[in-house]
Nucleic acid binder design. Structure first.
Lengths: 351, 351
DNA sequence: ACTGGTTTGAAAAACGTTTTTCAGGATGGT
DNA sequence: ACCATCCTGAAAAACGTTTTTCAAACCAGT
C-alpha cells in the first residue's frame, strides 16, 4: 500500500485533503498544502491511474481509428497527435478497420466501452450516411459522453468536430496545375468509387475543367483502388483506348507511381509527352524519379489539430459549443512530373 | 446503475455468483449458471472494464514503443500485432521515442504506471547496456509485474523475450549476394554508428567478405543515418575517393534509394556498372526504378510473434519459463539493382 | 447416524481513489 | 454579542468490480 493513505498519514491530514491538493478540487490552506506536497515528494507518491479512472469515468486515453494503418498517410498523423497528447498527459490507443465499415462500428463500440476519453475517427462510411454520423455525436456509455472528431472528412454538420482538407479544392488545384502547364486533355484515375475522398477529388477535377471551359470526357476517367498496381493498370486502360491525352491526375501518389511506370514502359516521356500529378504528398512522390508533383495535405498538422480539438472538447467547459470544422489548406507541390527542372527536394522529408 | 447488481437481482443470486459465472472463477451449479447467463443476455450486461482493471491490477492493454513511427517499418509490425491482440481482446497503445533513450525511459515508466499488461519494446539503447536491460526484466509497479518483449534485437540473455531477425545474417546475405553477382569491391553505407542494428549489419558485411576471402577496406565503409539524403551523400563521398568499387550494400532501403539517385546523376548504370542491395524490404525498394534488391525482414510476422509471445507471458502460468528468443529468418529479395531482368513484382505489397 | 471433507452460495471486505456530507471555527454585518 | 455565512478539514460514502470469508448443504466412508 504505497497509496494515498500513507501520504495522508505522513502529512497528518485526511486522504480527502491529499486528493484535494493533488487535483486542486477545493481550497486547502497554504500550510497544510505545503505539508501534503512535501509528504508526496518524500514518498514519491503518484496516484494510481486505475482507481482514478474508475471514479472519473474515463481513462485519459484517446482512440484513433484508421482505415488502413499501412498507408503512408497515418504515421505522420500519429506523429502530430503524439506531439499534442504527450504534453497533455494522454495516451493513444490504435484501432484499424481495414476499410471495413462493420469493423469500424465494433471498434467504436469497444473504445466507448473501454472508456477512452475521446475518439479521432477516419471513417470508411459514406459521408452521407446521416443516421450513422448523427449517432456518433451522441456516443455515451454509463453516463460518460465520448466525443468524436472526424478526420479527413467534414462531418461538422452532423455535430462532429472535424479536421480535414477539402478534397474538391485539392482536386481542383491538381487539375488546374496541369491545365496551367498547357495540358489540354487530362485523364483522371480515381480511388475506389464508394469512397468519399474519391468523390471529392473527382468533383474538383470536373470543376477545374469547367472553370477553364474544357469539356468533361467520361472516357478519360477510370477507377483505381489507391494501390500502385491499380494505377499501373488504369493507365494501361487509358492508353489502350486510343484517345489522346497529355495529362493525368491520379487520386493518390501510389497510383501516380504506378502510372509513371506504365508510361515509361511505353517510352512516353514525363513530363514532355504526358504530365502527371498525384495526391497526398507521401514519401512515394519524393523518392521516385521523376519525382511526382502532388497535392500536399498537412498530415502532421492534421494530427495536431485533431488531438487539440478533441482535448478541448474533453476538458473544455464548452461542451455544448458549436462543432468545429478545421479546414486545412491543400497546397501544390511541383516536382519533375510536371516541370522537368523542378527541385528534387531531398530534404522535404525527415527520413 | 446497469451494473452487476442488477444482473444479480434479476437472476436472484448474489453478485459474487454473477462474477464467478462471467470469469469462470469458481464452479457454479448448472441451473444457477443458466439463470445468470440469461439474465446477462436479457440485460445486455457487460462488466465495466475500469472497475475490473482496478481489481485485476492491469488493463488488458499492450504498449508498443517505437523509435520513429514515421519509418516504413512499423505500420506492418502494428498490423501484425493487431491481428493477434484483436482476437485476444487486448488494446494497443502507442508511444514513440524519436530515437531518444531518455524518452524511452520515461515512456516505459509511464506505461508501467498506467498498468499496461505488457510492453513490446524497440529499444534505442545500446544492446550492451546490461544494467538497463536487466532492470527491464524486473519491471513492476505496486505488485504487478510488467513483462517486456524486445523487438528487432535479441535481448533474451537479459531475461527478456525477444523477436528479431539476425542482422548479421542479413548483412551477410546481402553482401554475399553481391559477391555471387560478381562484385569484387563492395562498399557499405551504414546506419548511425551508435545503433546496434548498424553494428550487426556491418558485422555481416565483414563476415561475408571474409568468407569469400576478400579483404576488408575501411575506405569503402561510410556512415549514413538511415535517411535517403544520407545515402545520397554517402555515395557521393564514396565516388569522390577515386577508389573503384562495383557494389554497394546500404543498411536500409531508403539510403539505397539515395545511393541510386547519386549513381544515376553520374550516369553510372545499375546494375551493369554498380550493383546495389538495400535492407528491410520496405515500400521504397519496390516502388523505385530500378527496383531495389533488398533483405526482407518479415515485419508483419514479427508483430504477430511479439504479440503472441507477450500474451503468453501475461496469461500463461509459465511466468518463470526461460525467456524466448524468436529468431526470424532474413531472406533475400532480388530485384533490378542486382539483376537487370528481375521481376518488378508489383504485387508484393498490398497497396 | 456420525464425522470429515468438499461443494456451493451469499455476505462482506477489498481495491485506491474521488466526491459528498457534516461539523467546527472563523468572519462579517447588524 | 449574535446570527448567518463562508471556509476548511475530517469522516464516510461511493465507484463497480473481484476476492475472501463464512456457513450451510451435501457426500462418502465408517
Amino acid at each position: 500500500m504505497t497509496g494515498i493513505k500513507k501520504v495522508a498519514a505522513r502529512a497528518g491530514v485526511s486522504i480527502a485533503t491529499v486528493s484535494n491538493v493533488i487535483n486542486g478540487t477545493r481550497n486547502v490552506s497554504e500550510p497544510l498544502r505545503q505539508r501534503v506536497l512535501t509528504a508526496i515528494n518524500e514518498l514519491g507518491y503518484q496516484a494510481d491511474p486505475l482507481a482514478s479512472h474508475m471514479k472519473k469515468k474515463h481513462t485519459r486515453t484517446i482512440g484513433l481509428i484508421t482505415t488502413r494503418i499501412t498507408s503512408l498517410f497515418y504515421p505522420y498523423v500519429i506523429d502530430g497527435i503524439n506531439q499534442v497528447i504527450e504534453t497533455a498527459g494522454y495516451d493513444l490507443v490504435l484501432h484499424d478497420t481495414r476499410d471495413d465499415p462493420e469493423r469500424e462500428i465494433s471498434c467504436i463500440r469497444r473504445l466507448v466501452q473501454s472508456r477512452v476519453s475521446g475518439i479521432i475517427l477516419d471513417t470508411s462510411h459514406d459521408k452521407n450516411d446521416e443516421t450513422y454520423f448523427l449517432n456518433l455525436s451522441g456516443l455515451s456509455h454509463r453516463g460518460y459522453h465520448t466525443p468524436v472528431v472526424g478526420l479527413e472528412l467534414d462531418l461538422s454538420h452532423y455535430g462532429l468536430d472535424s479536421v480535414f482538407v477539402d478534397g474538391t479544392e485539392g482536386g481542383c488545384l491538381a487539375t488546374g496545375h496541369l491545365i496551367s502547364c498547357g495540358c489540354s486533355r487530362i485523364a483522371h484515375i480515381t480511388g475506389p468509387l464508394h469512397s468519399s475522398l474519391t468523390k471529392d477529388r473527382l468533383l474538383g477535377y470536373r470543376r477545374a475543367l469547367a472553370q477553364s471551359g474544357m469539356t468533361f470526357d467520361e472516357a478519360l476517367v477510370t477507377a483505381g483502388d489507391f494501390s500502385q498496381l491499380s494505377g499501373y493498370r488504369a493507365t494501361g486502360r487509358l492508353l489502350a483506348q486510343d484517345i489522346a491525352f497529355d495529362g493525368i491526375f491520379a487520386a493518390n501518389d501510389q497510383m501516380a507511381a504506378g502510372a509513371c511506370h506504365a508510361l515509361r514502359e511505353r517510352s512516353l516521356k514525363i513530363p514532355e509527352d504526358i504530365r502527371l500529378v498525384g495526391y497526398d504528398n507521401t514519401f512515394v512522390a519524393s523518392v521516385v524519379r521523376p519525382s511526382i508533383s502532388t497535392i500536399d495535405v498537412p498530415k502532421t498538422e492534421m494530427g495536431r489539430q485533431a488531438a487539440a480539438c478533441l482535448i478541448d472538447r474533453i476538458e473544455g467547459s464548452a461542451t455544448d459549443a458549436m462543432p468545429r470544422a478545421v479546414r486545412l489548406p491543400a497546397s501544390l507541390v511541383i516536382r519533375e512530373t510536371t516541370r522537368r527542372d523542378a527541385d528534387p527536394d531531398w530534404a522535404l522529408f525527415d527520413w
